[in-house]
Write a protein that binds this DNA or RNA. Structure first.
Lengths: 212, 212
DNA sequence: CAGTTATTCAAACGATTGCTTTAACTGTAG
DNA sequence: CTACAGTTAAAGCAATCGTTTGAATAACTG
């Protein structure tokens, strides 16, 4: 052990409380939303002192912003990763699978992963004022989805496809927040996916049957 | 004007502030949810005195409960009305249309009607504790939906159908809360319905295509 | 007229609860 | 000894919240 190691240990301890605060904030944000969390709840859950928030983040608001921003990054990266892994010949069900998979995984995993998805979903129902930047990030990912999706649904025009994509995304977000998702979460990931993919794909394809 | 008329006028005025308080509460509940509303916000919006809440409802909590309960009744009645108006030979798209119509109408109408739907949707993402009774009402309506739906989708088993119904309901609720719904709301009701029905029907039918 | 009833109102109450800051305390390094 | 990175308990201090009170109004009742 050199002397530098001990300094590093202290620095790492600092980063650990910092990360703990952020994780605790995320968990509570996912349950109660931005307006429903209090400083003391977060510090209690993180096992840290109230002053640690000022020290590491400056204020409660900045801590929440950091936590939300980080969650959104995680989600978007997962989503983009799934899309880029698709072959260019992907079928509708494969695209729907890639689209739903981050949520499916989070539901099955629970814990911090699910907290990420719940928080992202909450951002999605926040009125746009003050959230323009984050909502913009959603938009850009949706464009990527539509690009991959369009070839599998040549009969659906672009505007319609955009709308259906938002509906499908809304459906997934709903699962993150509503009790039905909690029930789903008791199943293993593959079974969740087997249930979900046909529904997502069906919503994207639409139903054009006339008569029975 | 008899003497009784004047008494009635006073009584009616009382009922008017009562109704105004409930409407104001509903509007704010639809925006911020149960934990986000304050007594003074409600009374300011209603143009009433703070004490009027105690006088007419007993407490803020009871006022909120009354507003939420009333909203839920309105929603369920609309939903049930649509279902009962369906012919027994209804197609999938007709059932999907009936399922979606209360939300479509509310989106197009805006104002108090939309506040009703938003509030109901918020109840739907509330954790079940303390809301068992209201969540139970949802369940009973869903059973009615499934009964009507089942004949149009003979290939989908009951459990799967229940799941898809919840997904479809979640999608509609998402539209009530998210910005995408606000965009939709600029269109007239028929156009909203034309966009929405194929998506709802598609989600219910599911997609079973293999390959492209 | 005196008394009752239904409603509204301004004001104050009492209390919680919140975020942030401060100043003191660790242990390590130069 | 000084500087630093991190942590802490305590206090500051203000905002806000739900509820109650007691008076005021105005119409009816006996």
């Amino acid at each position: 052990m050199t002397r530098v190691d001990k300094v590093d240990q202290r620095r790492e301890a600092g980063q650990r409380t910092r990360a703990g605060l952020q994780a605790a904030a995320l968990e509570l944000l996912s349950q109660r939303g931005q307006e429903g969390v209090t400083l003391r709840e977060i510090t209690d859950l993180a096992g840290a002192n109230v002053a640690a928030v000022s020290y590491h983040f400056g204020s409660l608001k900045k801590l929440c912003e950091a936590a939300i921003e980080h969650a959104l990054e995680q989600y978007l990266n997962a989503q983009i990763g799934e899309l880029e892994a698709l072959p260019s010949t992907a079928t509708l069900q494969e695209v729907a699978g890639a689209f739903a998979r981050p949520m499916v995984r989070a539901l099955a995993a629970g814990g911090p992963d699910l907290a990420v998805m719940r928080t992202v979903a909450r951002v999605g129902i926040e009125p746009p004022e003050g959230w323009e930047r984050l909502h913009g990030k959603f938009d850009r990912t949706r464009e990527g989805v539509i690009r991959v999706l369009a070839p599998t649904l040549p009969d659906v025009d672009a505007e319609e496809l955009a709308f259906r994509t938002r509906c499908a995304a809304g459906m997934l977000n709903w699962l993150a927040l509503a009790p039905v998702g909690t029930e789903l979460a008791t199943l293993p990931a593959e079974r969740i996916e087997r249930h979900l993919v046909p529904v997502v794909a069906g919503a994207l394809r639409g139903d054009a049957t006339v008569g029975r």
